[in-house]
Design a protein around this nucleic acid. Sequence first.
DNA 1: TCCGACTATTGACAAGCATCAATATTGACA
DNA 2: TGTCAATATTGATGCTTGTCAATAGTCGGA
Lengths: 114, 114
Amino acid sequence: MTVRENLLAESDVCPPGSTLVVPEGDFGREAGLLKVIADPTRLAILRIVAANGSVCACDLESPLGLSQPTISHHLRQLFDAGVITREKRGTWAFYAIDRDGLQAAGSPITALIQ
Amino acid sequence: MTVRENLLAESDVCPPGSTLVVPEGDFGREAGLLKVIADPTRLAILRIVAANGSVCACDLESPLGLSQPTISHHLRQLFDAGVITREKRGTWAFYAIDRDGLQAAGSPITALIQ
DNA sequence: TCCGACTATTGACAAGCATCAATATTGACA
DNA sequence: TGTCAATATTGATGCTTGTCAATAGTCGGA
């Protein structure tokens, strides 16, 4: 009896009995949150905001080299994902890191490392 | 003198002196690694592999409900990103979590939380 | 009340990507 | 060496998304 035949002895498929533990979870939601962070521009925004505490949207246009609508779009993505906070003062909008939201968004990764 | 004029006193732009700290980094590379993880199917694969220690590619087709080429494509993405390892035994391919790679891929997020 | 500046939204377009069918490659076994 | 099974690659397609131009909304100040 070959190694393969032995492995297949108690099943009709490939190697193990294919009795996999299949964890459940809302992978779509988790991936959606991670996808918001997994973008070069949004990573740069997060890094800048984290380094400065609180940042006005108007000050991002220059270092990022992108148009105002594009930056506004990314800020909205980050805000909707709950990883940054927004505070409006007059016509200005100040953004800051939401540490709890960031930790929650990154939890699918950290949980894999234990 | 209004609040705004006071804020603008020493600059010709919006609120602060716009003297932002702008951290440097390879955001493209970091985002690329995160993007590999930020996918529902690949998150499911990682979760299954983590829960079973070592998993044969052939056993993933059933729980994921995807075609064999598609699963092979995702496994390649994860392997190239360094978040899983591959060991070939005969015609089978077994995959396992690469904890160091996963931690490295997630570091852009964990670094923001400190 | 009007004007100017900052921000947000809409519409459109190009690039990236997840998916599958078809095919190629590789390894075990007779 | 020939055949079969598991895996990987290629080509094609539809969907998602990052980007900008144009526009709308909003607030402060004269």
